[in-house]
Simulated assay, not measured.
Amino acid sequence: MEPPRRKASFLASMKAVFWSFFGVRKRRDYEDDAVNLNPVQVIVAALLGVAILIGVLLFLVKMAVSQ
Rank of each mutant, 00 (worst) to 15 (best):
residue 1 M to E: 08
residue 1 M to L: 14
residue 4 P to N: 13
residue 4 P to V: 08
residue 4 P to G: 11
residue 4 P to L: 15
residue 4 P to F: 11
residue 4 P to W: 05
residue 5 R to Y: 05
residue 6 R to M: 03
residue 6 R to D: 12
residue 6 R to H: 04
residue 7 K to C: 07
residue 7 K to E: 04
residue 8 A to D: 05
residue 9 S to R: 04
residue 10 F to I: 00
residue 11 L to R: 15
residue 13 S to E: 02
residue 15 K to S: 01
residue 15 K to W: 04
residue 16 A to W: 00
residue 16 A to E: 02
residue 17 V to W: 05
residue 18 F to M: 13
residue 19 W to Q: 15
residue 19 W to E: 14
residue 20 S to P: 00
residue 23 G to C: 00
residue 23 G to H: 02
residue 23 G to P: 00
residue 23 G to D: 00
residue 23 G to K: 09
residue 25 R to E: 05
residue 27 R to H: 09
residue 27 R to A: 00
residue 27 R to G: 00
residue 28 R to A: 07
residue 29 D to C: 01
residue 30 Y to F: 12
residue 30 Y to C: 13
residue 31 E to R: 11
residue 32 D to H: 12
residue 32 D to P: 05
residue 32 D to R: 14
residue 36 N to H: 06
residue 38 N to S: 06
residue 40 V to A: 05
residue 41 Q to M: 10
residue 42 V to L: 02
residue 43 I to H: 10
residue 43 I to W: 11
residue 43 I to A: 13
residue 44 V to Q: 02
residue 47 L to I: 07
residue 47 L to R: 01
residue 47 L to P: 01
residue 48 L to P: 03
residue 49 G to Q: 08
residue 51 A to I: 09
residue 51 A to M: 07
residue 52 I to L: 09
residue 52 I to N: 07
residue 53 L to Y: 07
residue 55 G to V: 00
residue 57 L to M: 10
residue 57 L to S: 13
residue 57 L to N: 13
residue 57 L to D: 12
residue 57 L to A: 14
residue 58 L to C: 10
residue 58 L to F: 05
residue 59 F to Q: 12
residue 61 V to D: 11
residue 61 V to W: 10
residue 61 V to T: 10
residue 62 K to R: 15
residue 62 K to T: 14
residue 63 M to T: 14
residue 64 A to V: 04
residue 65 V to C: 07
residue 65 V to P: 04
residue 66 S to H: 06
residue 67 Q to L: 12
